[in-house]
Structure formats: structure tokens, C-alpha cells
């Protein structure tokens, strides 16, 4: 069982092609992928999106995954979060092998332990801001903790707007609700998929600040998919998805937002 260092700011050895992690660590990694492959059928031919991809993420670490559009970032995120199944390879989440579980088993594993922030916010239009934040709580053993939800809304600066419906909120405000929702269950792992993709640069920057502040305070592991180099640089570690594999990457300091590489 490969383990990983839990240190925050020291990039661990990137398991790019090697399947073995060289040094021993005290803790299990939060997430460990080994030789993941994903093929999809597109018409008559089979398309390989991910090929022999391996990755290990330690608790408390923040990892940015960059890549061109179409490189398979979303597919990878879906696999890592257990939303999708790989064609081949092994994935461990919280030390449990996902391949041994069915859809419902994976869902149960996620409940309360994984948070999500999406590019298009994914707030339920018929629920108020507070209810949207409450939603993941209600699926966890901590159902009904309205106070907790309200507290998180306050922390993202929306304490006054708890009863607003998503459509009554601006894009930035909607994403704040989404962030509150991602953190409300005190998850061990948060996935963020292009969290600033639908926002203007200023709002985006505020959202990023908020995301990293909360992440640091909560000590949560963060896996962030983006094509924004500035955003990626704030993570402990940057990886780039090319040809179905992850390679270490040092984002250029000059490019900020909108850059593809």
C-alpha cells in the first residue's frame, strides 16, 4: 500500500508513470490512482482519453490539474470523484478501493466526505441559498444542522441573503453559495472544476481567495481543475494532463487567466 506525506507545501514525488511511491509516509493518501485508463466509444472507433494515469494526493494537499480543453480534465475529475468508472486501473478513495464498489457504494463513500465546486455552480433553482447549502448536510449523518449551513453562508459573505433563490443572486454570489455548500460537511476532499470559468476576472479572483482561505482554515485536501495558470500557481502542486497522462508542470508567472497552458 503506497502511502504519502501529509506535508502541505512540499510537493511529493509525482507519480507520473511510476506506480510506486519511493518514500514511506506515515499517512494513507486521501486519493490514490494507479494506471487509470478510460476509453470511450465514439461512433465506430474507440477513443482513449486517459492512459495508464497514476496520481497520489496526500491529506491537506492542494493539487491543480491543468490541460487544454478536450484533454480529458472533466473525465479525470469524474473518475477521481468516483462519479464514473475507469476502463482499467485501480482507484482508492479514503483508503477504499472504488472498483470493489457499486454506484451506490461509491455514493455512500462520498456522502459528507467529498465537496464539489462546479464551473456552472449547479445550484438547485427551486431551493433557497440556505437550502442549497443544507442539501449535502441532509445526505450526511449531520442532517438538520441549519445553524451550520447558516454559519457557512455567513463565512462566504452571504449571511444576509440566505432566503434568496439562485436566480436572485449574481454569478459570483451563486459560486459563493456553492463554495459554502462544498465545505459545509467539513469534507476531507474538495473537488473544484473550473470554479472561475463562468465569472469575470475580478469576481473570479475573489472566489479564488475565498476558496483557498477556507481550504487552508479547514485543512481540506483540494483537487482543482483549471486552465487558469494564476489559479494553478496557488496550489501546492501543479500537474498537466497531456496525452492521457499527468506530468508535473510549472505554470508561467506571466500568464494569468484564460491561458491554456
Amino acid at each position: 500500500m503506497p502511502t504519502d506525506d501529509a506535508s502541505l507545501h512540499q510537493p511529493t514525488t509525482d507519480t507520473i508513470t511510476a506506480s510506486k511511491v519511493p518514500h514511506k509516509q506515515a499517512h494513507q493518501p486521501v486519493l490514490h490512482a494507479e494506471k487509470l485508463s478510460k476509453q470511450v466509444r465514439s461512433g465506430e472507433r474507440s477513443l482513449t482519453i486517459l492512459h495508464d494515469l497514476s496520481l497520489s494526493v496526500a491529506a491537506g494537499e492542494s493539487v491543480a490539474i491543468l490541460g487544454k480543453s478536450g484533454a480529458g480534465k472533466s473525465t479525470l475529475l469524474g473518475l477521481l470523484a468516483g462519479l464514473d468508472t475507469p476502463s482499467d486501473g485501480e482507484l482508492m478513495l479514503f483508503g477504499q478501493s472504488l472498483s470493489q464498489m457499486d454506484e451506490d457504494g461509491r455514493a455512500a463513500l462520498r456522502a459528507g466526505r467529498v465537496g464539489f465546486v462546479f464551473q456552472n455552480f449547479q445550484l438547485l433553482p427551486t431551493l433557497s441559498a440556505l437550502e442549497n447549502v443544507l442539501l449535502p448536510l441532509e445526505l450526511s449523518p449531520r442532517a438538520g444542522e441549519t445553524q451550520t449551513a447558516a454559519k457557512w453562508l455567513e463565512r462566504v459573505g452571504l449571511g444576509e441573503r440566505t432566503e434568496h433563490l439562485p436566480k436572485q443572486l449574481s454569478g459570483g454570489e451563486q459560486q459563493r453559495v456553492a463554495i459554502a455548500r462544498a465545505f459545509v460537511t467539513d469534507p476531507e476532499l474538495v473537488f473544484a472544476d473550473e470554479p472561475t470559468g463562468n465569472l469575470d476576472p475580478d469576481t473570479g479572483a475573489q472566489i479564488i481567495d475565498l476558496l483557498f482561505t477556507l481550504n487552508r482554515e479547514a485543512g481540506t485536501t483540494l483537487i482543482l481543475v483549471t486552465h487558469d495558470h494564476a489559479l494553478a500557481r496557488r496550489c501546492d502542486r501543479c500537474l498537466r494532463l497531456t496525452n492521457g497522462q499527468l506530468v508535473p508542470f510549472e505554470p508561467s508567472a506571466a500568464v494569468s487567466g484564460g491561458g491554456d497552458e
Partner: peptide, 16 residues
């Protein structure tokens, strides 16, 4: 469907 997918994402089972 969106709601269902999201609930799924947050860990709801099919039965739920």
C-alpha cells in the same frame, strides 16, 4: 435530472 445528479454527487443512493 440535474437535481438527481447533484444529489448523487453528494452521496445519495439510487434508492434514496
Amino acid at each position: 435530472l440535474d437535481t438527481a445528479a447533484l444529489l448523487r454527487c453528494f452521496g445519495a443512493s439510487q434508492y434514496q
